[in-house]
């Protein structure tokens, strides 16, 4: 998948994002939400990684950090784009927090994001053409004629055909699935090498969900795009991704190849998630998820294991020790648990 000498496309090291609560002009905030807490992972070119977790566990924050919509509090995100010849600004490793305004445009051409809500992620006053051509316009790529051609080409690609009838519709004239296709087209129109897809199917009808997932997969494969697929649904992640990272309260608790993770879940949280996936077989009894209580808020969390309060296996060790560092239990299978 990845060219052997280029190293990983993306290296995330010790990523932290804390949001202050309260505070003001003259008052320092004392409480912080630890939305993302010491997250590290690697991705190679063309690979797809699923980021799975409950609402509020920091998935979307990771996504926004990766596309530089947010700045990390701590840690680094380093890209190594495969096409340095194309863009002198992006030669060698690019660390997002060091990107200066001159480089930012080039960076945005390589890293794009698909947003969760197709109903809100498009300006209601702008046409499909305006929306999709926006990256080209703000980056000053091409002339009107070239942009028109490029946009109709990408509309064909995402299955909105004939392109001519869609170019000048406004978002309210499109269905949810069509809007999400437009959102995908917008992310792909400048030919990125990495895309963050933030639950692109969660707001859609079940009927259009599969179509969108298929489309994304096909396009990513055809165009050689690596993507981070954020979802709360393990079944979707299984379908879409080579590898899956499970996140809990700002920490990645388990990371492995998709089949390995599903066959051999090591973290109690992953097991609970797996047992919550509905089974199409009505006769199959499944044990209730052995997980206690509700997602707690990551506001100034204690040092111990994040999952301690809800873990069915928690021991005295888990209470005393700090949050366990991820360990490689099997080749490529990382778990952060004292007991695994």
């Amino acid at each position: 998948m990845s060219s052997p000498d280029s190293g990983p496309l993306l290296a995330v090291d010790g990523l932290n994002k804390r949001f202050p609560i309260g505070g003001g002009l003259f008052r320092k905030p004392t409480d912080f939400i630890h939305a993302v807490d010491d997250v590290s992972f690697r991705m190679s070119a063309g690979e797809s990684l699923g980021l799975v977790g409950e609402s509020g566990c920091g998935k979307t924050t990771v996504g926004k950090l990766l596309v530089k919509l947010l700045e990390p509090t701590d840690g680094s995100i380093t890209y190594r784009f495969a096409t340095p010849a194309m863009d002198p600004h992006l030669a060698g490793p690019v660390e997002t927090s060091n990107i200066r305004s001159r480089q930012l445009g080039a960076f945005r051409r390589q890293v794009q994001m698909i947003f969760q809500d197709p109903y809100e992620s498009m300006n209601p006053r702008r046409t499909v053409y305006d929306t999709i051509a926006e990256p080209l316009v703000v980056q000053g790529i091409g002339h009107v004629q070239e942009r028109l051609d490029r946009v109709s080409e990408i509309l064909d690609l995402v299955g909105l055909t004939p392109a001519g009838t869609f170019l000048f519709r406004r978002p309210h004239e499109l269905s949810g699935g069509q809007r999400q296709r437009v959102a995908i087209a917008r992310a792909l129109v400048i030919g990125p090498s990495f895309v963050v897809a933030d639950e692109p199917t969660s707001m859609l009808d079940v009927s259009s969900r599969t179509a969108i997932m298929l489309l994304m997969q096909e396009l990513a494969e055809r165009l050689g795009i690596a993507y981070l697929y954020i979802t709360h649904d393990l079944a979707v992640a299984r379908y879409m991704c080579h590898r899956i990272a499970v996140m809990y309260l700002g920490k990645i608790v388990e990371l492995a190849d998709t089949e390995e993770l599903l066959r051999n879940p090591l973290h109690p949280y992953t097991r609970a998630l797996l047992s919550a996936v509905p089974s199409p077989d009505p006769t199959r009894r499944r044990e209730p998820p052995d997980i206690l209580g509700d997602l707690s808020l990551p506001v100034n969390p204690p040092q111990r294991c994040r999952f301690y309060d809800r873990c069915p296996l928690a021991t005295d060790l888990c209470r005393r020790e700090p949050h366990p560092p991820p360990e490689e239990k099997a080749p490529g299978h990382w778990v952060a648990c004292h007991l695994a």
């Binding site: 926004k64 596309v67 919509l69 930012l104 445009g105 945005r108 051409r109 794009q112 994001m113 947003f115 969760q116 809500d117 809100e120 992620s121 498009m122 300006n123 926006e134 990256p135 703000v138 980056q139 959102a183 917008r186």
Partner: peptide, 22 residues
């Protein structure tokens, strides 16, 4: 706070672009 503002920024739009176009 609408997501399309973030989308415009992710597309590479500057402050000026976001304020005057969106």
């Amino acid at each position: 706070v609408k997501p399309y503002i973030e989308a415009a920024r992710a597309a590479g739009g500057g402050h000026f672009h976001v304020i005057f176009v969106h």
